[in-house]
């Protein structure tokens, strides 16, 4: 899913959690001290790290392309308002941050990223959120994005036959209704495989886990 570039560089081997923290740190520093020398240094550092990780130049440009027009507008506005130095600062800072963020994505497997995320969210326990449930929610999301995309494609085919493929309502309503009907079975399937993060031994699944709808109504 993520355009991961395999490798064994120090950038690849750095634990994902540390990479994210470093990235957040870099962002905070650049915004706290809006100085051109810092922004350029960050840009240089980004270039150095991309080289170290062995990322092809094409992928580096891919990271910047979505921002190209925003960068252009920003630089023009800044140059007009505060002179070209200010324009350069904004552009360099944004480019550096986007490149560094892209580097994290390119050098980390999404599975590792998610695992780090789950560990990183362990503190949620203290505000009453069970990290195991967060972990399941993350995994379920990744599992069902392609399923929903496939349902959407199927619905689009069906609506095309009726000449409705340009209508977002005609596309979205059946997708959402099918998704909601699926949710009953998915929840039942999870409980059927002994999922029990709260350790509520003995009791039947929580009341709302039971079928809210008649199972005879086929999804």
């Amino acid at each position: 899913m993520t355009p991961y570039v395999p490798g064994d560089s120090p950038v690849h081997r750095c634990p994902p959690g540390r990479k994210i923290l470093l990235l957040v740190g870099a962002g905070s520093v650049l915004f706290a001290w809006p100085r051109l020398d810092l922004a350029l240094a960050a840009l240089g550092l980004a270039g150095l790290l991309y080289g170290m990780a062995g990322i092809p130049a094409r992928l580096v440009l891919d990271q910047l392309r979505p921002l190209a027009w925003i960068l252009a507008v920003l630089v023009l506005v800044q140059v007009a308002l505060d002179g070209w130095l200010a324009g350069l600062l904004v552009a360099a800072r944004l480019a550096a941050l986007v490149l560094l963020a892209g580097l994290v994505t390119l050098t980390t497997r999404s599975a590792d990223l998610i695992e780090a995320l789950q560990r990183g969210l362990a503190w949620l326990r203290f505000v009453g959120v069970n990290p195991a449930k967060v972990g399941l929610a993350i995994a379920l999301t990744l599992r069902f994005i392609p399923v929903l995309a496939a349902i959407a494609a199927e619905v689009r085919e069906a609506q095309r036959a009726r000449g409705l493929e340009r209508s977002l309502v005609a596309l979205t309503v059946p997708v959402v209704v099918r998704m909601l009907k699926m949710s009953d079975d998915i929840a039942a399937a999870i409980d059927a495989r002994s999922y029990d993060p709260d350790g509520t031994d003995g009791r039947p699944p929580s009341p709302r886990t039971r079928l809210s709808k008649d199972p005879h109504v086929d999804p």
């Binding site: 999301t141 069902f144 994005i145 959402v176 949710s183 998915i186």
Partner: peptide
């Protein structure tokens, strides 16, 4: 949150992602 609530949360997160795939 019950299992059913977790499923709902995940499905609506997935739906938001899937809507990003629409042209």
């Amino acid at each position: 949150m019950s299992t059913r609530d977790i499923v709902f949360v995940a499905l609506f997160a997935a739906l938001t992602a899937a809507l990003g795939l629409f042209p």
